[in-house]
């Protein structure tokens, strides 16, 4: 009976779960124009829009467009003590380097001193396209996020973030992505991170999913997850809607972090948000399409 039921539903495509075919054909293609993809794929373009409309995001220190201007732009950021270096068109966190100054004023990366030459090599590599499949790229140097204590209460390392999926400026689903011991600081579900479902109305964490099974607490340290209240939830949802309003993309995923000082900040915009969010919420995306 159960199998027959599933078969019947398959033929009518009557599931709440959104599959990759339907996501592409029914949500991404009709709602996003191909020429606008770059506004989300290129972090520099994304930030231009965010800054133009005063949507909270981390402060841009500088953008390096070519190898000749590395020295000059580098001098500009010497006033800072902690910076994030990102390839504008990187994916999956590749090429991102966080560097900070130690007490004597030397730059360090991961607790070790790093030479100016090494930094310059990394900057050139980004520009030469090492992290963007051969095409030349730009370097984005920005303010480094200090994760809010809410995150470290769940897991102390790495930078967790929220992902909110919006269709036609309306938030549909949200999840919190948290690193685990095996995900190596990364919060992506397919890299071994945790996806945590969110009750959108209440701003409360519902359950955690690690790709295999569900948890009430963090599997590595036992910290409570389920029922935890998210600080700034109202404004997180608000800035995601604000972002959606100012991008010509009608189906998008917005990544948000909470900074210790600045509060919620937009980190990234995604035209092809993954489907794992449905597993984190134990609910198919089409359920929200029908109800909202």
């Amino acid at each position: 009976m159960k199998i027959l039921n599933i078969l019947k539903k398959s033929l009518q495509n009557d599931f709440d779960v959104l599959g990759i075919n339907e996501r592409n054909a029914s949500l991404i293609y009709p709602n996003n124009k191909r020429k606008d993809y770059k506004l989300a794929d290129d972090k520099v373009l994304t930030k231009n829009i965010l800054e133009a409309y005063h949507i909270p995001c981390s402060k841009t220190y500088t953008v390096i467009e070519n190898i000749g201007s590395i020295q000059e732009k580098w001098n500009d950021v010497q006033r800072q003590t902690k910076i994030a270096i990102k390839p504008a068109n990187g994916s999956g966190g590749g090429g991102i380097k966080i560097i900070k100054k130690d007490k004597e004023g030397h730059w360090t990366s991961g607790g070790h001193r790093i030479l100016k030459e090494e930094i310059f090599l990394h900057l050139s590599n980004i520009i030469m396209g090492r992290y963007s499949f051969g095409s030349t790229d730009r370097v984005l140097i920005e303010e480094c996020i200090e994760p809010h204590s809410f995150f470290s209460e769940i897991y102390p390392q790495g930078v967790p973030d929220f992902r909110i999926i919006l269709l036609k400026k309306k938030p549909l689903m949200a999840m919190l992505r948290v690193p685990t011991d095996k995900s190596d600081g990364k919060a992506n579900l397919h890299q071994g991170g945790l996806g945590i479902g969110i009750d959108m109305k209440k701003g409360i964490l519902t359950q955690a999913y690690d790709g295999v099974s569900y948890f009430d607490t963090h599997p590595d340290n036992g910290n409570q997850i389920v029922g935890k209240r998210i600080p700034y939830w109202e404004s997180i949802v608000q800035i995601s809607i604000q972002t959606a309003k100012h991008f010509p993309l009608n189906y998008l995923g917005v990544d948000i972090v909470i900074d210790k000082i600045h509060g919620p900040l937009i980190m990234e915009v995604n035209v092809r948000p993954g489907l794992g969010i449905q597993l984190a919420n134990k609910t198919g995306l089409k359920f929200f399409l029908k109800t909202t």
């Binding site: 599933i6 599931f15 779960v17 599959g19 075919n21 339907e22 569900y214 597993l279 134990k282 198919g284």
Partner: peptide, 19 residues
């Protein structure tokens, strides 16, 4: 096929918790 939006067979397994 380019217009077919059904679930892929592998997705039945991936989303077995929800289906």
């Amino acid at each position: 096929l380019g217009k077919w939006i059904g679930l892929r067979v592998s997705e039945y397994r991936r989303f077995s918790f929800i289906i």
